[in-house]
Deep mutational scan, measured.
Amino acid sequence: MSDQEAKPSTEDLGDKKEGEYIKLKVIGQDSSEIHFKVKMTTHLKKLKESYCQRQGVPMNSLRFLFEGQRIADNHTPKELGMEEEDVIEVYQEQTGGHSTV
């Protein structure tokens, strides 16, 4: 019986991991920090939209990076291997420009 009891508790931990929340720091170019608590399985588009709304800027005017890689709207913290207190960097999107060649 103890084996049966242990097995469901392991499964519960697996389920808990799926719905687990982590805190992420979003740091802007001006070094301002906003902290977000997100589920591991939530699409990061929600975090990006919330950040842009707080900053009063359109979402397409900023780019969000985690460990140097651009974050897509459909990425989740779990897919990117994010952990508690990880940092997302935000930069002004640069458009235009010309070749110097």
Results as ranks from 00 to 15, higher is better:
2 S>H: 12
43 H>A: 13
71 I>C: 00
26 V>I: 08
30 D>W: 03
12 D>H: 11
60 N>W: 08
5 E>W: 10
58 P>T: 04
34 I>M: 09
44 L>V: 01
81 G>K: 06
77 P>H: 03
74 N>H: 08
26 V>Q: 05
27 I>F: 10
8 P>T: 06
29 Q>L: 11
7 K>E: 12
60 N>L: 04
76 T>L: 01
92 Q>G: 11
72 A>E: 03
47 L>H: 03
11 E>K: 11
56 G>T: 04
94 Q>T: 08
75 H>E: 11
76 T>S: 09
48 K>S: 01
33 E>Y: 10
57 V>A: 13
84 E>N: 06
68 G>R: 04
33 E>N: 06
63 R>Y: 09
73 D>V: 02
90 V>L: 03
46 K>E: 04
69 Q>Y: 07
29 Q>K: 15
75 H>F: 05
57 V>P: 01
46 K>R: 13
46 K>Y: 11
57 V>L: 11
22 I>S: 06
51 Y>M: 01
20 E>F: 12
54 R>A: 02
78 K>V: 10
42 T>A: 09
37 K>Q: 13
56 G>F: 07
84 E>F: 12
32 S>P: 04
41 T>K: 05
65 L>N: 06
25 K>L: 00
69 Q>N: 12
47 L>D: 05
97 G>E: 01
25 K>R: 13
74 N>M: 08
31 S>T: 08
81 G>H: 15
94 Q>R: 08
26 V>A: 14
20 E>I: 12
91 Y>D: 06
18 E>C: 06
64 F>M: 01
57 V>H: 01
88 I>C: 02
50 S>T: 15
28 G>Q: 06
54 R>K: 06
77 P>N: 02
12 D>L: 10
60 N>C: 05
4 Q>I: 12
4 Q>H: 11
33 E>R: 06
60 N>P: 06
33 E>S: 07
67 E>I: 01
40 M>H: 15
24 L>V: 13
27 I>Q: 05
92 Q>D: 07
32 S>Y: 05
81 G>V: 06
23 K>D: 06
86 D>G: 12
90 V>P: 05
87 V>H: 09
13 L>Q: 10
2 S>V: 14
11 E>M: 14
2 S>P: 12
18 E>V: 10
78 K>S: 15
17 K>L: 09
83 E>V: 12
16 K>A: 12
